[in-house]
Design a binder for these strands. Sequence first.
DNA 1: TAGTGGTCTAGACCACAGC
DNA 2: CTGTGGTCTAGACCACTAT
Lengths: 249, 249
Amino acid sequence: MTAQARYRLIAEELRAAVRQGEYRDGGRLPSEEGLAQQYGVSRGTVRQALAVLRAEGTVTSRRGTRRVALESPPLHDFAELLSFSRWARSQGLEPGSRTVRQEWHPAGPEEAAQLRLPQGAQLFRVVRLRLLDGRPAMVERTAYPQAVGELVAPLPADTFSVTEQLERVGVLLTDADHTVDLTVADPQDAELLGCAPGAALLRERRRTTDPAGAPVEWSEDRYLPGVMAFTVHSSRAVPGLGRHSADGP
Amino acid sequence: MTAQARYRLIAEELRAAVRQGEYRDGGRLPSEEGLAQQYGVSRGTVRQALAVLRAEGTVTSRRGTRRVALESPPLHDFAELLSFSRWARSQGLEPGSRTVRQEWHPAGPEEAAQLRLPQGAQLFRVVRLRLLDGRPAMVERTAYPQAVGELVAPLPADTFSVTEQLERVGVLLTDADHTVDLTVADPQDAELLGCAPGAALLRERRRTTDPAGAPVEWSEDRYLPGVMAFTVHSSRAVPGLGRHSADGP
DNA sequence: TAGTGGTCTAGACCACAGC
DNA sequence: CTGTGGTCTAGACCACTAT
């Protein structure tokens, strides 16, 4: 919630106003010049705030006319995207976690490519069963490069949010690439989730990197149907979402 | 490809340089001041260009150190996200389309909510079977509000890209909200796609809006497994992706 | 301490929408 | 034509990283 920069504060205020329907009559916001005077800042600062809202999908923008308020889905913290536990709590659900297995293991081809390590490099693999309100919801298979693995390995097996622990130790997660598609339950999935082998699961694969661009984790999460959905806003101005051929990239 | 603004040209050049591994030795880009001199523009313009690349996931940024080039998945046009045909062609696949049914119909509750129309308002419904290289790939059920429907209705039934046609008539699509999850084939899906009823399908629901924020289409697309995957980049700086409880929002 | 990106200002001109 | 957002400039100061 803390946001020092003026433009972030202004963005928060405007976002709240838009969500509360402040500008619902036609949906048009005040002009940039008007907002600048209202907040006592320069137009540039107002534009920075509005750029945030445009990227979120909270407002549109178009040369010649005032900005328009959009109805948009509720926002999620970046952190909620990386941490199952944080996400669950934000949804009012009780997260649970059971570590099924963890081990040091040489990197396979996919892991090596995703973590940008030579094949066979030592990495730390963890398989966890994630629960929502006590019921199995997702199987998570994560691989950490050696340096990160050495921080993860000593954590108690029932650690809820590894992500939060990593942040506490100073590992910063700033960017992630996600791929979402469909897969089928293998025998281990089936046993852990309590579904039939071969049953369809929603799959998210994710590579997370730190500010230096170095991969911090590579994870494949498999959700039971009906548990979770991904949402994303895309706009001509700010791309980001993509549609790819199966199993890519 | 055309990009008038200087910062867009600079962004394109830098993107190309990064993708070609220009800055791979450690991955650090020149300083903003350096780039400004190199391109003969002010630092502000360079920063605009870099903001584009940061939002894409092409570079990171962090106070105190130079920017770092990220390995990131290939980019997709916003247009490719909205148009199945355009996307297919960009993947080197031959798109096909068969209109299964189209009709004027009063809006149901979901349609009304998504298109922000009163329940029972007339809208134009279209069901299409989409093909890739001649094989069934996806079933698309789209609803258009009346004004848009009147533009879509007269199009020939085998029109490949309705989206492209709409743009040609001056309908601008600028923003979209996507929800991705898993569903099961109903009898119509099964017949069209040639799968078993009850088989799992990857589902994308999408509301597209114009620059004024008015909904232009509401669509539910159901893909056969193995045909398609969604990718998205998320970062602490530029949120956008979300994870939601099932069936929401 | 030097270099870098983050924030903010004050002004200018342009392209486009809508009257 | 007027008002609006889009682009660009030239400068300033600050917060942070790395040495």
